[in-house]
Design a protein around this nucleic acid. Structure first.
Lengths: 348, 348
DNA sequence: GTTAATAATTGGAACGTTCCAACTTTGTCA
DNA sequence: TGACAAAGTTGGAACGTTCCAATTATTAAC
């Protein structure tokens, strides 16, 4: 059949109108007569026309394309998958489509991905930055006036919007809860020390430990990769201490699951002989056994709110940076032992 | 500063060359003198030039953009997240960037997303189709000569490449293994009955049940949503039967986790009083307690292989449909009780 | 039956890039 | 010295769309 791609001019010719009219039909203009519209639409379907967004964007330098980009640093963490789903629900109803890319914590990859999205003229970007991202990396975006919302990790000095959860309050509440249950040797487990999120969560833990009178002890902080495997590993190191902890506030739920795995491997029952609190409240947290006590940050909710912030900026024209903190709350389930008897230290 | 965006002409003016020369620099042509090249590059950096891929694609109608799209039906299932990172690793090294979109099993959304990706001139598409997708939905893509690889779910009649795992062989092996352990009342649990994948996995189960002499019984098939919650639900129905099963072959790992949750809630220990086998071998399968016996389909591997198939088609020019089946293998861990004593039926 | 207003349509210019054919400069060879 | 080739560079046309100003067809008002 047709060798080249079918254009608006082909449609015009076949429908016996001008290309301008076809263009008007394309943008659903009320100027065009109903009968012409239906005819043009019919021809389009018949010839298998596909809109060339590139050409369109070329002309209307102002209006950007109807896509928003989301860049995450670790797609295998279901937290980010859920965040993306949350974003999707709101951008979808605003008539946008979402393109997601994963950086796997690589700054180089992140640069490529963001450049590529810019080249395709995204209307805005939601970014959970890779470790080590600097304000400088985002400079070009703000210079170009592209709305950006940072989520999960903020970047000091970058003049863009951000939405992070109240990490300090979260771990603070976790420690208070464990202390109220009678624990005093409470460890802080998992996470990479050189991130802002780690600092904030550790800060909440530290302040709460000081406040509860038991005091903050450096040795009770045992870091690791923020993954399930990292949790297993970190727990091993914690339990090897001369006076091991009886409870753990974990960097995130993945670590907490790892800690539970590690406990079980030592024949210690999480929620019974050892209290575990997570952070994030991922979807599995409530169905796993024992159900995980954790800090709920509602990833889908964050995604939705971030998307709303972004859309607001897009519609406002002039992007105005806005910082928000998403509040968190402690969800008490079984893994902290609150529903059971007093915590003991019956180890194998 | 500059109100409009900076173009190749601005660069040319500032560098004292013609726009053609700038264009040649952009595509790293050997024709341009080394000194000119460095000068032009310097000016680009200085003025903050961003390449306009849309304009470029407009001119070179043949060469498509350097992006490949991946469309998945359920991003919250970590299977797909891992598949996506598998794809990413190979397209990345081929100089492509990957844009992912989620359809949440909505055909309408899938249509939008695919249309949007086409409009942006993707070089190829990897699609895990939403439930109910028909060959007709893919027709426009193949007509336009856009390479497509279907993963996970095949669509009969669509003239595109596909890569699915050997579902039949997987459940067949699972049943054989359980039978060898002495089980005879083996249920098939979870999944929506109206999908090709379900049919294939059920088929493997049915054939194996017939072969082992215990025979296939309709009542032992209990379907549900293919999620953790679905597994909990399905197990409840299975255990309510007059003569409940002692083992379950699950539709996927998510269901299997749900089944384990449900068993625990009934004080039945998975891997001890009840055997559970999953399907997919997601990342958590090996670290959970008890470690899940499952059919390994290696989602990252499938992603990689699908990406290779796609790149092959892209480079070949003329896309040639190719069907492949990814072999699977049974990974024996703890949840089937193979490492423990004979299976009993000590229920609470 | 003329004028004014409204509705519908239209050709041409513009967007930022690449391709092509033509051009200039420099160097080589008979 | 002239012819020729090689290396670099260049202006204009083209890609598929939208916008603008201009045009024609239709209806309403007097």
């Amino acid at each position: 059949m047709g060798k080249g791609r079918v254009t608006v001019i082909d449609i015009a010719k076949a429908a016996g109108v001008s290309k301008s009219t076809v263009s008007l039909v394309l943008q659903a203009s009320p100027l065009v007569n109903e009968s012409t519209r239906t005819k043009v639409n019919a021809v389009m379907r018949e010839l298998g026309y596909v809109y060339n967004r590139g050409a369109a964007n070329l002309r209307q330098a102002n209006a950007r394309s109807k896509i928003i980009g989301i860049v995450v640093n670790d797609l295998t963490n279901s937290f980010f998958a859920e965040l993306a789903v949350g974003v999707d629900t709101v951008v979808q109803s605003a008539g946008f489509v979402q393109f997601l890319s994963n950086t796997s914590e690589s700054i180089d990859r992140q640069r490529e991905v963001i450049a590529s999205m810019r080249e395709h003229g995204v209307s805005g970007l939601i970014i959970s930055p890779a470790r080590g991202t600097e304000a400088l990396d985002l400079k070009p975006l703000v210079m170009a006036g592209i709305p950006v919302v940072l989520v999960v990790r903020n970047i000091p000095g970058a003049k863009v919007s951000s939405l992070v959860s109240d990490n300090h309050a979260g771990t603070f509440a976790a420690v208070e809860h464990l202390a109220a249950l009678g624990h005093s040797r409470i460890a802080f487990v998992g996470g990479f020390p050189d991130t802002a999120v780690f600092d904030e969560r550790l800060g909440g833990y530290r302040d709460a430990m000081s406040k509860t009178g038991t005091g903050f002890q450096e040795e009770l902080v045992v870091s690791s990769a923020p993954s399930r495997a990292g949790g297993v590993d970190a727990l091993a190191r914690a339990m090897a201490m001369p006076d091991p902890p009886t409870a753990a506030v974990c960097f995130n739920d993945a670590v907490a699951f790892g800690v539970c795995d590690g406990l079980r491997a030592r024949r210690i029952e999480p929620g019974k002989n050892f209290a575990v609190v997570g952070f994030d409240d991922v979807i599995e947290a409530k169905t796993t056994v024992p159900a995980l006590t954790t800090i709920s940050v509602d990833p889908q909710g964050i995604g939705q709110r971030a998307a709303q912030m972004l859309l607001k900026q897009i519609n406002a024209g002039k992007p105005e940076a806005e910082s928000a903190v998403s509040s968190v709350r402690l969800i008490v389930r079984e893994s902290c032992g609150a529903a059971m008897n007093k915590p003991g230290r019956k180890m194998a």
